Computed example of a mutant assay.
Amino acid sequence: MLIGYARVSTPEQDLTPQLDALREAGCEKTFTDKASGAKANRAGLADALSHARTGDVLVVWKLDRLGRTMKGLVDLAAELAERGIGFRSLTDGIDTAGTAGKLIFNILAAMAEMERDLIRERTTAALIVARREGRVGGRKTVMTPKRLEAARKLLASGMTVREVAPAIGVSVPTLYRHFPASVQDTINAEGEGVEA
């Protein structure tokens, strides 16, 4: 099945020329968007992609109707190739049914895979350097040494975790992370021994 996709950047622009071309090309279903090509979330394109099945062909009037960035086009081409969906651009002469179209499609898919690999390599390298320098990801802990000491004293005095957490300005799960039940029992036992 030929599935058409047409897009204009603003609501004032007219979709008619694209829709006519897609109809003449034999598209049975056509999806549209009136949104910038730079916008990642386009409902019409998402609908077209969810409707397409293996063996179908996504048809556009021109390649730039799919997106403005090379990365966006490369990622979309890789997704289509992975799902076994063909692609045709009417004015650019790209058709994956032909040898040249398949070549372009495969090049775009390979570029997408290479980009993902490069991102993964850069991320892994950056994490290794950060760990070597003593930095770890995520938010900084709210449990300062002063809060830990205050929590230890309050727990030893017989207060519960639910009472201690708001008293020192942390959440109950945070306090449990630093003082599991077994540690709390030890602290409480020590506190009882000190008081007695």
Rank of each mutant, 00 (worst) to 15 (best):
A40Y: 07
A130F: 05
S89V: 11
A43T: 08
G93V: 13
D95H: 10
R135K: 12
D92K: 07
R53D: 13
R65N: 09
A77Q: 08
D33F: 05
I187H: 06
I3T: 09
A48C: 04
E115I: 09
E28D: 14
R23Q: 13
M159C: 09
I94R: 07
A125L: 03
R122F: 07
V57N: 13
G4Q: 01
I104P: 03
A100F: 13
R53S: 15
S89T: 12
D47G: 11
D95K: 12
A48P: 15
S36T: 07
S9P: 00
P17H: 01
N41S: 10
A100D: 12
V142Q: 10
V164G: 05
I3Q: 03
D64P: 08
R135E: 02
E28L: 14
T144N: 01
V8W: 04
T141Q: 01
R147W: 04
A110P: 05
S171D: 06
K140R: 08
A112H: 13
C27S: 10
H178G: 08
P166M: 03
M1T: 06
G169V: 00
R42L: 02
A167N: 11
I85F: 07
I107K: 08
A52H: 02
E121D: 15
P17I: 00
A189P: 04
A6L: 01
D14F: 03
R83N: 11
R7W: 06
S36E: 05
H178Y: 10
A97E: 15
L90V: 04
A110K: 04
A130Q: 04
F105D: 07
A125T: 05
I187G: 08
T123H: 10
M111W: 12
A112F: 13
R53Y: 07
F31S: 11
V142T: 11
R83P: 09
F87G: 05
E115K: 10
L63C: 05
V194S: 14
L66F: 01
E12P: 06
A181H: 12
L19P: 01
T10E: 00
N41A: 12
E12K: 13
T16F: 12
T141F: 02
A78E: 14
I119R: 15
I187L: 06
T54A: 14
L63H: 07
P17Y: 00
R162D: 14
